[in-house]
């Protein structure tokens, strides 16, 4: 076995391990939130039970092909994200030049898939949630792309893997703050979780999904959360600290979730448009 093949194997193994870490990550979040609520909370492995239960539910035929396709497409997209992240952490097979732009687009793509699924489901809750997601994407997705480019433009590196080798702690402080702010919307944490506001639009984007489709979408969400945490940890604190930083982020976001109610939709959108403008100004100053 050659050296590169060995490395590929390690990447593969790490990627699939990261799926389990993603589920544990969600369990950790739930447990921590429960402790902040002064409850005992579910066991850390509760997301495993939940997904297994969802997979075991009765399957039915759906009419709309887009509605059916969305869970499968989004899980593929989420695995693509995970491959890029894990290769940035341990290998190099997916560590091609400008892969951070691909990563940003994959994140956008995931949410776009959700909106397709939501609109195809024809539920008023899901459609309303999709509209909110679109409005919010105006602010935070553009910021996400801009912030990613800021990191690489300021340091002059072209890929995630090389960035994590060459640079460590808080290279680009202003962009780091913006990235943490964007995390509120990506992780769907309370002041800005208008997309899946339970009391307003029930289950939001996934209102009509159930069974194995819902399980796939849930896993996608978990993977998305973990990979955002890893990417942010990688960019802010370097390669070695990526995973601890991801858990640090989850603690920070959970603390925010426990102390703040939800903003009105338009207020949240306004906040993110301001964030986007700040990112744009920073990018402009660089040029």
């Amino acid at each position: 076995m050659s050296c590169s093949e060995e490395k590929n194997m390690i990447e593969f193994i790490v990627t699939f391990l990261l799926v389990f870490v993603a589920l544990l990550f969600a369990g950790f979040h739930r447990k921590l939130l429960a402790r902040l609520h002064n409850r005992t909370g579910p066991p850390v492995i509760q997301p495993f039970y939940d997904t297994l239960k969802l997979f075991s539910k009765k399957k039915e035929n759906y009419e709309n092909p887009i509605f059916n396709a969305v869970p499968y497409v989004s899980i593929i997209a989420s695995f693509a994200i995970l491959f890029i992240v894990s290769s940035a952490l341990v290998g190099e097979s997916f560590d091609f030049d400008y892969n951070f732009i691909v990563l940003g687009y994959l994140f956008i793509l995931l949410d776009t898939f959700y909106i397709f699924g939501a609109v195809a489901s024809r539920s008023p809750f899901a459609i309303h949630s999709g509209v909110r997601e679109l409005l919010l994407m105006l602010g935070y997705k553009t910021t996400f792309l801009m912030v990613m480019s800021l990191f690489f433009a300021k340091t002059g590196v072209v890929s995630l893997g090389t960035y994590s080798i060459e640079f460590g702690f808080l290279q680009v402080p202003f962009a780091s703050i913006l990235l943490v702010l964007v995390g509120f919307a990506v992780m769907k944490v309370t002041p800005f979780d208008v997309v899946n506001a339970e009391t307003e639009i029930s289950a939001g984007l996934f209102a009509e999904y159930y069974g194995d489709h819902l399980a796939l979408l849930k896993i996608t969400e978990f993977i998305k959360d973990l990979s955002f945490g890893l990417v942010a940890g990688l960019l802010l604190f370097g390669k070695i600290w990526a995973l601890p930083a991801a858990f640090g982020f989850v603690i920070f976001y959970t603390l925010m979730e426990a102390t703040s109610p939800r903003y009105c939709t338009f207020k949240a959108v306004k906040v993110f448009i301001i964030v986007a403008i700040l990112a744009f100004i920073d990018l402009f100053l660089l040029v």
């Binding site: 939130l33 902040l36 609520h37 002064n38 409850r39 309370t190 979780d193 506001a197 339970e198 009391t199 426990a258 102390t259 703040s260 109610p261 939800r262």
Partner: peptide
Amino acid sequence: MHEMGLETLFMYYMR
């Protein structure tokens, strides 16, 4: 508080 999304105070009030 639960309606507004602040589960924490919901739990504390119920306790």
